[in-house]
Amino acid sequence: MDRNTTNGTHNSSDTCPSIDDFRNQVYSTSYSLIFVLGFVGNFFALAVLIKTHRQSSPFHVYMMNLAMSDLLCVMTLPLRVIYYVRKGQWEQGDFLCRISSYLLYVNLYCSIYFMTAMSITRFVAIVFPVQNLRLVTVNRARFVCLGIWLFSSLTSSPFLISGQHVDLSTNKTKCFEPPKHASNRLPKLQALNYLGLILGFVLPFLTILICYAGIVRTLLSRTLATQGQKGSAMKAIKMIVIVLLTFLVSFMPYHVQRTIHLNFLSKESTSCSEQSFMHKSVVVTLCLAASNSCFDPLLYFFSGESFRSRLSSMRHTVRTSILRPSARQKPIAGSENEENHRLDAR
C-alpha cells in the first residue's frame, strides 16, 4: 500500500476517486434548467423593454443591458451541456472553447456592474431627488453601460488564453477544466483571481451595501404622504431584497470558493476527502453563479421602473393589432350576409 494513502494524504489528485460522474450529472442538469429559465425570462423581459423603448429612462437603459448580458450568458450554456453529456469530451473546436468560457465571465461581471449601476441610480433618486434630475440622464446611463461592457470585456480577456487540450491519461479533448493540483499556472491564476475578487465582487458589493444603507435610512426618516412615494419606497425595498439575494446566493459563494480552491491547489499534500469536497464545491458554486440570470427577471418585474405598466402597454398594443384585421373583415362579412339574404328573398 502506498505510504501517502496510509497517512490519508496525497500529492496528486490522480490517486483519488474521480468525481466526474457527479460533475457531469450536476452540470448538465443545472445548466439545462438555467438555460431554459434564463432564456425565457430574459428574452420576454427584453422584448417588453424594446417594445416600449420610447418610455426610456436611465433605469430602463440599465435593465435592457442587464437582460442582454443575461441572454448572452445563458447562450453559452448549451455548449457546456453538450460537453458534460458527452462525459467530458469536447468536439466543438478550440475557438468555441475559448470564446464560450470568455463570454460566460464577461456577462457574469457585466451583470454585477449593471446591478451596481441600478442600485446607485435608485440611491440618487431617493436620497438626492432634486439633484437626480440633473445628474442621472439617459445619455449618461448609456455611456456608463458602454464603459461596463468595455471594462468587463478587457478584464475577462485572460479567459481567452486557455483553450482545449488533450488529457493524456484518457486521450480525451478537454475544455472548461479547472487547473490541476500544483499546476505551474497557479501563481498567475491566483493573481488574476484576487484582481477579479476585488474589482468584480468586493468593490461592487460594498458600493451596493452603502447605497442600500442610504436608501433605508432616508426612507425611515421620511413620512411617505402620497401613494406615489409609497410605491417608490416599495420598489426600492424589493430591489434591495432581490439584488442582495442574488449576490448572497450566486456571486458570493462562487468568489469565496474560487479563492479557497486556488489556495488549496497550491498545497503539497491533501487528503482524498478534502479534494473530493473541494472539487464538488467548485461544481455547485459555479452553477449558483450561472443561476444569477434566473433572478434578474424578478428584478425587472418587481422593482423595475414601470415595468408592469410597460407590460400592460405592450399587451394592449398586441391586442389592438390583432383586433384591427378582424374589424376590417366585419363589413365584408356583413355584406356577404346581406347578399345571401337577398338571394333567399328571391
Rank of each mutant, 00 (worst) to 15 (best):
H53Y: 12
I161R: 06
A125D: 07
R346C: 05
R217D: 00
P129V: 10
N132H: 07
N340L: 13
S69G: 15
N7V: 04
I260Y: 08
K235M: 06
V216A: 14
A213S: 09
L150Q: 01
R258S: 14
F251V: 06
P129L: 08
A236H: 00
M278P: 09
R98M: 03
L343R: 04
G163H: 03
K51L: 12
A117S: 11
Q92W: 05
G147C: 08
S293G: 09
D94M: 02
I148M: 10
L49S: 12
S157P: 06
T173D: 00
H279C: 05
N193V: 04
Y254L: 06
V282Y: 14
V318P: 03
T270L: 12
F201G: 07
T6L: 13
S69I: 10
N4M: 10
L244P: 01
A327N: 11
T170G: 01
R86C: 05
L71S: 10
I148R: 09
W90L: 06
D344L: 14
L104T: 13
S57V: 01
L209V: 03
K51Y: 09
S12A: 13
S153E: 01
V138T: 13
L195F: 13
V26Q: 09
I99F: 08
L244F: 07
L262I: 11
Q164H: 08
H181P: 01
H255P: 04
E177Q: 15
C294G: 00
L133H: 14
H279F: 05
S306Q: 15
F307I: 08
D70C: 15
N292D: 13
F201Y: 14
G93Y: 03
C73I: 00
N184W: 10
I19R: 00
K87Q: 09
L146F: 09
G88A: 07
S232K: 15
M115L: 14
L343Y: 03
H341T: 08
F264H: 14
S157Y: 01
T5A: 12
K230M: 06
S30N: 03
G88W: 06
T121S: 15
S152R: 06
H255W: 11
N7A: 08
E338L: 12
L288P: 07
Q329K: 12
S162G: 02
L160C: 00
V284N: 01
N340D: 09
P204D: 03
V283D: 00
H261Q: 07
L160G: 03
T52D: 15
Y300I: 00
M64Q: 14
L343K: 04
F205N: 12
V166C: 13
